[in-house]
Simulated scan of single mutants.
Amino acid sequence: MPPKPVLHRDNPDAEPLIGNIKVTREDWLKMGLDVLIRDGEERVKVLALAEAMGVSRSSFYWYFKSRQDLLDALLTCWEETNTAGLIRQANAPAERITGAVLNVFRCIANPNLFDTALDFAIRDWARRSEPVRARMRAGDDARVAALTMMFARYGCAEMEAITRAKVLYYMQLGYDMAEPEESYAYRLSMTPEYLKVFTGQTPTEAELREFEDYSRQFWRDVSP
């Protein structure tokens, strides 16, 4: 007899996962990402994930050939979220370079565009894996290239464009890694000064107001 089909949950976010309820491929990926971020790649184990979701380990193999297949899928999730998200924002239309950089700053505000914790988890993983390190470097190169083209679109010469791109990108990585104890409201108040440093120009009130309105959806301590 052919195997019975896997029964997907109607609501993947429903809790708890108990009994014989089967889960989707996205559920395995989400749980894998959660463990990767919290505990690191070495703790991403098929049996542990299955137990955490209350399902049979065998259901894993409906979606993945092996644990390595899952790990590769987690890397792809990172690329499709963080690298693609930043590149998409760097390519977003804006009248001025200050508005273009604010489009990139949306990655800071919105974790759906760029998951900082996931980025750090991948970088930690890359210290122990040459293939992961190669994909991380490729991602960094693609992000810097997108930012370089962004600055070039607004009139920066080649060397100025790549320099500003690297300053913007690597400063933000270091800033997030340092985890300064600053409220989002304070960071928002600093935005005009950051834009002057990154672009050499002063943002308009309309640009700042639009970014604040966008950020308020995600930053709880930004006053209305």
Rank of each mutant, 00 (worst) to 15 (best):
R128Q: 12
S129D: 10
E130I: 14
E130S: 10
P131C: 05
V132F: 05
V132L: 04
R133Y: 15
M136F: 14
R137M: 14
A138H: 09
A138Q: 13
D140F: 11
D141A: 11
D141H: 08
A142C: 01
A142E: 01
R143I: 15
R143Q: 14
V144Q: 00
A145S: 03
A146G: 04
A146H: 05
L147K: 07
T148Q: 02
T148L: 01
M149I: 04
M149E: 14
F151W: 08
F151Q: 05
R153Q: 12
R153G: 11
Y154R: 04
Y154I: 05
G155L: 04
G155I: 03
G155N: 03
C156V: 03
A157V: 14
A157E: 15
E158T: 14
M159D: 14
E160L: 02
A161R: 06
T163P: 00
T163S: 04
T163E: 01
R164D: 01
A165T: 01
A165N: 00
V167S: 03
V167Q: 05
L168E: 06
L168P: 06
L168H: 06
Y169N: 11
Y169A: 11
L173A: 10
L173C: 12
G174E: 04
G174K: 01
G174F: 05
Y175N: 12
D176W: 11
M177H: 11
A178D: 08
E181K: 15
S183C: 00
A185S: 13
A185W: 03
Y186T: 15
R187K: 15
S189E: 12
M190S: 09
T191N: 08
P192C: 04
E193H: 13
E193C: 07
Y194S: 14
L195K: 06
V197E: 07
F198K: 04
F198I: 05
Q201A: 14
T202L: 07
P203Y: 04
P203T: 06
P203F: 06
E205K: 12
E205W: 08
L208V: 07
L208P: 01
E210N: 01
E210L: 00
